[in-house]
Simulated scan of single mutants.
Amino acid sequence: MTTESRARSFSSAAARYAAARPPYPPALFDALEEAAGRPLRGARIADVGAGTGIATAALQALGARVLAVEPGEGMAAELRRRHPRVPVVRGDGNRLPLASGCLDLLTYAQSWHWTDPARSVPEALRVLRPGGTLAVWSNDPDVSVPWIAGQQARIEARFGPGWYINERPRAEAGLEFTTRLLTWSRRIPLDTHLAKLSTHSLFLVGAPGTDAFLAEERARLREQFPDGWVEEHYVVDLSVAHRPRG
């Protein structure tokens, strides 16, 4: 199973992805404004690997002038359907279809790990104005919560480590990243949780045994949560760097 095949897998489940994937907490956008040193309202932003527009729409609702950049046909179509007022262009972080120096912020919500940093970092520096901000974040399962740690362990025992792809950006090409962690949770039906789990690339590429695993997980979690509701806990991992002004 290659990283490229996993990256291409999301379009097959775009509607389910949009319905089941978690949003981002308001505290994230407060932290983003603080790190950028400017309000999001009126900021020129490109959200790269925008998917179905979860982060993009939140940024637009806060008054940002946001453009979605998405490589996947199915994901881009779902984004347009759900958020018809958001402009969308096809592309990815390794070759941004954007003019040089045109952005105040460049954001990657749950998508930096699909890029090649040797290409995406120079592209970020190119499209940001001097002093502009590159922000990379992800919603990661909070494994300090016992039931989530147990689920993570079961997935790794069945399918091996590395099923959950996430990579914090490293300092390179003159960019120094600062990191902030934010915790939050949401209470959702068990079926929504399982649908969310099924939108991760491991399950979308049809790895052997994934359907059986989801069925077993449903039965196990029904015993743990007999009312049919679970509280998912997340850690938002936010990394921010600035294009040098000089």
Rank of each mutant, 00 (worst) to 15 (best):
residue 41 R to G: 15
residue 134 L to Y: 02
residue 129 R to D: 05
residue 183 T to Y: 13
residue 191 D to H: 12
residue 137 W to M: 06
residue 59 L to N: 02
residue 28 L to S: 03
residue 162 G to S: 07
residue 218 R to F: 07
residue 217 E to S: 11
residue 60 Q to A: 13
residue 100 S to M: 06
residue 89 V to C: 13
residue 147 W to S: 04
residue 22 P to W: 05
residue 4 E to I: 15
residue 3 T to L: 15
residue 215 A to N: 11
residue 6 R to E: 14
residue 64 A to E: 08
residue 178 T to R: 14
residue 166 N to Y: 15
residue 219 A to P: 06
residue 225 F to Q: 03
residue 65 R to Y: 09
residue 171 A to C: 13
residue 123 E to I: 01
residue 53 G to L: 03
residue 175 L to I: 06
residue 91 G to I: 08
residue 221 L to P: 03
residue 148 I to T: 06
residue 121 V to R: 00
residue 111 S to K: 09
residue 190 L to S: 09
residue 115 T to F: 00
residue 19 A to M: 09
residue 87 P to G: 11
residue 107 T to I: 06
residue 136 V to C: 08
residue 57 A to H: 05
residue 41 R to I: 09
residue 213 F to E: 01
residue 235 V to G: 04
residue 11 S to A: 14
residue 182 L to Q: 11
residue 192 T to P: 11
residue 231 E to K: 09
residue 143 V to R: 13
residue 134 L to D: 03
residue 164 Y to R: 14
residue 29 F to R: 08
residue 50 A to N: 04
residue 74 G to V: 06
residue 112 W to Y: 05
residue 61 A to M: 09
residue 86 V to Q: 11
residue 85 R to A: 13
residue 63 G to T: 10
residue 86 V to M: 11
residue 119 R to I: 02
residue 171 A to F: 11
residue 157 A to E: 14
residue 177 F to N: 01
residue 154 R to A: 11
residue 144 S to H: 10
residue 181 L to Q: 15
residue 155 I to Y: 00
residue 237 D to V: 09
residue 117 P to Y: 00
residue 243 R to C: 02
residue 215 A to V: 15
residue 49 G to D: 01
residue 245 R to W: 07
residue 44 R to K: 13
residue 216 E to L: 08
residue 171 A to L: 04
residue 165 I to L: 15
residue 216 E to R: 12
residue 167 E to H: 14
residue 212 A to H: 15
residue 37 G to T: 03
residue 26 P to Q: 10
residue 146 P to S: 05
residue 42 G to S: 06
residue 71 P to S: 11
residue 109 A to R: 01
residue 57 A to V: 07
